[in-house]
């Protein structure tokens, strides 16, 4: 992470493309938090890449003036994994939503946590599929009856992403609220600084299909305890909290990312020795 000589303001990290989001969408604030975090860390724009899947929140890369990849639904973590392994010098962020990240991309979430690569995974969670106009997502409460594919509610246990991340091996787990733009920026910056897989759930209201989420800013509250590096304590907290605690909830600095296996480069044709008869 090389520091730039000339200070880049948050604005320097933004592109001139106007977001497609609805007025009042929490994702505007998350976008601002990301640019603030990048600025706070003085990261060079060309040394940052933001990879996303498909969905409202996944539109973020185009709104940034860094390298970006707007891939396909559910696969952001796979593209980011390949990029980070091939280019460990890049700072790689992954932007996703609750449908993209926990439903169609759920398997990759588990294995990205296990791999513990130095990635920052920001999931903007609004408990709904917004781009397809209002279906229940894995984090939707079971009794939400407005879901167009699940009239009467899903009746399903909501997915608990933080607990899953912990159990799967993520080494930095945080929850933020888009209503707290600076706090979210600080947490994302800490996640980028963390040398392993950092998972940040951002509660980011969908004002169109979940207007009641406007009330989230009154429900969130900072976690009353310091981050722990003890998985057992973290599990207890994450399983028993009210889903509105914010802050860094688990931070394990003991488990390092896998070492790079890159060795001295040889010419490919040396490998033919193994084929020779005798």
């Amino acid at each position: 992470m090389a520091a730039n000589t000339e200070k880049l303001t948050p604005r320097c990290y933004k592109s001139d493309i106007k977001p497609v989001w609805c007025p009042g969408c929490g994702d505007f604030s998350v976008l601002a938090s990301i640019t603030k975090a990048l600025s706070a860390l003085s990261l060079k724009r060309e040394e940052v890449a933001v990879v996303s899947g498909i969905g409202c929140s996944s539109r973020i890369p185009a709104y940034l003036n860094v390298y970006g990849f707007h891939s396909v639904h559910g696969r952001a973590l796979t593209v980011a994994t390949g990029l980070k392994v091939a280019r460990p010098d890049m700072t790689v962020l992954v932007a996703s939503g609750d449908g993209d990240g926990f439903s169609i991309g759920g398997n990759h979430f588990l294995h990205a946590c296990r791999r513990n690569l130095d990635l920052t995974y920001v999931v903007m969670d609004n408990q709904v599929y917004g781009m397809t106009k209002g279906q229940a997502s894995p984090t939707t409460d079971p009794d939400w009856e407005a879901g167009k594919l699940t009239p009467g509610g899903t009746g399903l246990n909501p997915f608990q992403p933080l607990v899953i991340a912990l159990a799967s091996g993520a080494t930095f787990i945080a929850r933020c609220s888009s209503g707290d733009q600076d706090g979210t920026a600080d947490t994302i910056a800490a996640a980028i600084r963390h040398p392993g897989f950092a998972f940040v759930q951002v509660l980011s209201p969908c004002v169109t299909f979940r207007p009641e989420q406007r009330g989230w800013s009154n429900l969130v509250h900072p976690a009353p305890v310091e981050p722990t590096d003890d998985p057992a304590r973290a599990a207890r907290r994450l399983l028993t909290d009210d889903s509105f605690f914010t802050g860094v909830l688990y931070h394990n600095q003991h488990r390092q990312p896998p070492p790079s296996t890159h060795r001295q480069e040889a010419h490919a044709s040396v490998l033919k020795e193994a084929f020779k008869v005798l």
Partner: peptide, 20 residues
């Protein structure tokens, strides 16, 4: 990289190739 499935295999090679 041994991937978790073929969806991940192809996503990873796209990411690596994007990276050069």
């Amino acid at each position: 990289v041994q991937a978790e499935d073929e969806l991940a295999s192809v996503g990873q090679i796209i990411g690596a190739s994007f990276g050069g």
